[in-house]
């Protein structure tokens, strides 16, 4: 019996994930970010129940009501619409655009990066040069160019942002797969006869998840910002529907008198973008395998 000997296995708690959590929690700002995103998310999701007024309800008598007057927490805008309610509803749009655009960048970026790296050869060259070319254009201009031809709407804006911001993900995925392609466990899967899509999804994707997750978080922040830009410039979400970006546009003309009209949507954008960025940075540290044993 000596030839096959059971080794003593001390069974440590299958720990991987809690380590990641512990390192994440060490980033105070990221934890604050999670809390803020949660609050913004709850506010947006629960807008129909939380909003004290209809966001589009016009009350001429209460135009420019400052905060804490006329029963309005954050005051009313130039048409007497309730700013707090509009902020909540705008959050629905802005966050939804951010998340949807991020998903688009993920799908497009992963598909292009993975396809290029896995097949190699001229496909690789073609797709990665395309990526480089796309990276050469500042995405805001690309976006404005496209926006001129497309009817603005939540879906189309998310799609447009996604289609102009997938390059970073593609590059990350490409690099990761190139590094993994020569790993023996990939050879083992090929030997077993696993088709390419299965190798990519089962063997490669889980190993590239960490950097992708980080990039996705940062992309969400970027997408929220981009939506604000184009809405601010008038190509995005169209009034009367509120987004944080077009609320800013609205406030622009009255900025010298009623600065608080610009302050609250600006604050919402800043908080959301900063929070996603903090979370992304913390994830980068927490998921770094080199720090696994720390």
């Amino acid at each position: 019996m000596s030839d096959i000997l059971l080794e003593e296995i001390p069974l440590p708690a299958p720990a991987g994930r809690s380590h990641v959590l512990r390192r994440f929690v060490r980033h105070r700002l990221a934890v604050l970010g999670v809390v803020l995103i949660a609050l913004l998310g709850i506010g947006a999701a629960g807008a129909p129940w939380l909003a004290p007024h209809d966001p589009d309800e016009i009350a001429i008598s209460e135009r420019y009501a400052p905060p804490f007057t006329a029963g309005r927490v954050l005051g009313a805008d130039d048409l007497g619409r309730d700013v707090f309610s509009r902020l909540l509803y705008a959050g629905r749009i802005s966050l939804a655009v951010g998340v949807a655009a991020m998903l688009v960048t993920l799908i497009v970026g992963f598909a292009i990066g993975a396809f290029a790296a896995y097949y190699g050869g001229w496909i690789d060259t073609l797709l990665m040069r395309l990526t480089d070319v796309m990276l050469c254009f500042p995405s805001v201009f690309l976006l404005l160019f496209v926006a001129a031809f497309v009817t603005p709407g939540l879906g189309s804006i998310a799609l447009m942002i996604g289609l102009t911001c997938w390059m970073e993900i593609a590059r990350i995925v490409h690099a990761q797969i190139l590094a993994l392609k020569s790993a023996d466990f990939i050879a083992a899967a090929e030997l077993a006869g696993a088709p390419a899509w299965r190798i990519v999804l089962r063997q490669i994707l889980p190993n590239t998840l960490a950097p992708i997750l980080v990039a996705a978080t940062l992309n969400t922040a970027n997408a929220i910002l981009l939506e604000s830009y184009i809405s601010f410039l008038g190509y995005g979400i169209q009034p009367p529907q509120a987004s944080w970006g077009n609320m800013l546009t609205n406030a622009q003309s009255d900025f010298q008198v009623d600065a608080w009209l610009a302050f609250f949507p600006g604050l919402a954008i800043t908080l959301a973008v900063a929070s996603f960025n903090f979370i992304g940075d913390a994830l980068r540290d927490a998921l770094d395998p080199r720090l696994r044993d720390a």
Partner: peptide
């Protein structure tokens, strides 16, 4: 290098057999 670091031993064996 021969084992996928993100898969348990059981999952690796299962995948190997399922593929076949």
């Amino acid at each position: 290098g021969a084992l996928n670091p993100r898969m348990t031993i059981g999952a690796t064996l299962t995948e190997h057999l399922r593929v076949q």
